[in-house]
Each structure stands twice: as structure tokens, then as C-alpha cells.
Amino acid sequence: MTDQRVTVVTGASRGIGAAVALRLAREGHDLVLGYRSDEEAARQVAEQVRAQGRRCVTVQADTTDQSDVERLFGAAAEAGLGPVTGLVNNAGVPGPYGPLAEADPEGIRRSVDVNVTGYLLCARAAVRAMTETGVAGSIVNISSGAATLGSPGEYVHYAAAKAAVDAMTVGLAKELGPRGIRVNCVAPGTVWTDFHPDPERPAKRAPNIPLGRCAQPEEIAGAVAWFFSPDASYATGAVLRVAGGM
């Protein structure tokens, strides 16, 4: 990897994505922050990144739209940041909450599209960018503990999509290993963010977690940052569960 690290973070305006952006900034990354709709929140994250002495640009993008993805990755060059060396695939939506039989079909489709197609399109763009510049970069996908727990009665469709992310991580790591591009995955458990339709869901789930609490976004960001660090130079195809024992 080049000395200059330029990382694209999707879904960077809030929650895990915002925490990841700030952690990577502290560790020397310049950033392209992708966001879907909350321009003000993205601007605030960018200000915090710049306050740490790092360069940063924000881009409004729907990761399921190929032209938006191309614009997202092109922003690094346009802003003079240099070649993209990393991607954090984080943008996601839960979709309908409740039993699958009661779920809205369009909501299911949107969840799968964002959580699977969006990840694939962004990974594709990252690989093309890294290959073009000869960068031995790193991709980190954000999955979920739901991928193996199934999330019955809540998000079966979301769990299925995140299982696809795990499979994508393993397959792409094997595909890209010969090029020196590492692909890994962090699978969080329940995290205190505004991702949940029921704001009290983390509190309700905490008693059933072996550690007795839900995670803070910064704890997930720490795991993501490790995969970008020299200490993880031999890690690829790994799915790191950060779920409090679940």
C-alpha cells in the first residue's frame, strides 16, 4: 500500500460509518465520505475529520446506482486526494421490521439492493481503481452478527443479505489476493445507533448478550481500523465478529 492512504467510507454521515471515518482520520487516512441524504450530518463529520488535520470530501450518492458509485470514487481524484487505497462498505438499510410473512416486498428488495448490490458495486469500483493505479489496497465490508443468527421475527431478509456480504468477502479475498488487495469483514452485533426502527431495541437485547450490553459505534470502528493497520497485513478473507459473545 502507498504511504498516502485515501479511503472511501459509505454511509459515513452517522452511526458506525461516522465513527469509522473519525477513527481512520486519527490514523492518517484522507477520506471520501459517502452519504445518502443527510448533507448536514455529513458536513459535520467532515469538519471533525479536517480538525484532525486530514483532507476530506463529502459526496451524496446512492450506492445502488452505478453512476453515483462512479462519481463517489472519482471524487478522490477531483479533490486532489490521490489514488483510492481503501474502501469501507458500510451503507445499509434494515428494511421492514417484523416477521417475513408481514414484510413489504418493496422494502425487502430495497434492503437486499442496498446491502448486497450496493456493496458489490462499490467493491467493483474500488478494485478497478486500485488495479488501475497498482495500489495494494484494502476493502473492509460491514456485515452483521445477524448473518449467522438469522434475526428471526425481525430482519430475516437483512440477515440473508449480510450472509451474502460474508460470502462476498471470502470470494473476493481469494480473487484479489494475487494482486495484493486484502478484503475483510467486520460483523457487529447490536450497536447503539439510530439504525433501529425501535430506538429501545438495543436496551431490550442487552440482557441476552453475554457481555451484558450493546456496542458503541467506536468499538466497531476500532475493529475496522485494525484491518487497515500494518498489524493486519496477513489478514484477508476474515470475518471478524464483534458482537459481545453473540
Results as ranks from 00 to 15, higher is better:
residue 14 R to I: 03
residue 19 A to V: 00
residue 46 A to M: 12
residue 35 Y to H: 13
residue 54 R to I: 10
residue 14 R to C: 04
residue 29 H to D: 07
residue 45 V to C: 11
residue 38 D to K: 12
residue 41 A to Y: 05
residue 50 R to M: 12
residue 24 L to E: 01
residue 34 G to K: 01
residue 15 G to S: 13
residue 31 L to F: 07
residue 25 A to R: 06
residue 53 G to A: 09
residue 54 R to W: 05
residue 31 L to K: 01
residue 42 A to P: 09
residue 51 A to L: 02
residue 52 Q to P: 10
residue 24 L to C: 08
residue 29 H to A: 07
residue 26 R to F: 06
residue 19 A to H: 06
residue 25 A to P: 07
residue 20 V to M: 05
residue 16 I to F: 07
residue 14 R to H: 11
residue 38 D to V: 08
residue 54 R to V: 07
residue 15 G to M: 07
residue 53 G to Q: 12
residue 54 R to Q: 10
residue 36 R to C: 10
residue 18 A to E: 03
residue 38 D to S: 14
residue 50 R to W: 07
residue 41 A to S: 15
residue 24 L to Y: 02
residue 21 A to S: 13
residue 32 V to L: 05
residue 45 V to A: 05
residue 42 A to S: 13
residue 23 R to W: 07
residue 48 Q to M: 12
residue 39 E to R: 15
residue 27 E to Q: 14
residue 19 A to G: 10
residue 36 R to S: 12
residue 22 L to C: 00
residue 19 A to W: 00
residue 43 R to C: 08
residue 20 V to Y: 04
residue 35 Y to Q: 04
residue 22 L to P: 03
residue 27 E to T: 15
residue 54 R to G: 06
residue 50 R to K: 15
residue 20 V to E: 02
residue 47 E to N: 14
residue 48 Q to V: 01
residue 25 A to C: 09
residue 48 Q to R: 13
residue 47 E to Y: 08
residue 38 D to C: 11
residue 15 G to W: 04
residue 40 E to C: 09
residue 20 V to F: 07
residue 41 A to N: 04
residue 31 L to G: 05
residue 19 A to Q: 01
residue 23 R to N: 01
residue 45 V to I: 15
residue 38 D to M: 13
residue 33 L to R: 03
residue 43 R to M: 05
residue 44 Q to D: 12
residue 36 R to W: 13
residue 35 Y to M: 09
residue 31 L to C: 10
residue 29 H to Y: 02
residue 27 E to S: 09
residue 47 E to T: 14
residue 48 Q to I: 02
residue 43 R to L: 13
residue 45 V to H: 01
residue 45 V to K: 00
residue 34 G to Y: 02
residue 14 R to Q: 11
residue 48 Q to E: 01
residue 46 A to I: 03
residue 28 G to V: 12
residue 33 L to Q: 07
residue 54 R to F: 14
residue 34 G to Q: 02
residue 17 G to I: 02
residue 44 Q to S: 06
residue 14 R to N: 06
residue 42 A to L: 10
residue 37 S to C: 10
residue 39 E to G: 11
residue 51 A to G: 03
residue 48 Q to H: 10
residue 49 V to W: 00
residue 27 E to K: 11
residue 50 R to T: 12
residue 25 A to I: 07
residue 15 G to E: 10
residue 38 D to I: 13
residue 24 L to Q: 02
residue 52 Q to K: 15
residue 52 Q to G: 14
residue 26 R to L: 09
residue 15 G to H: 11
residue 52 Q to F: 05
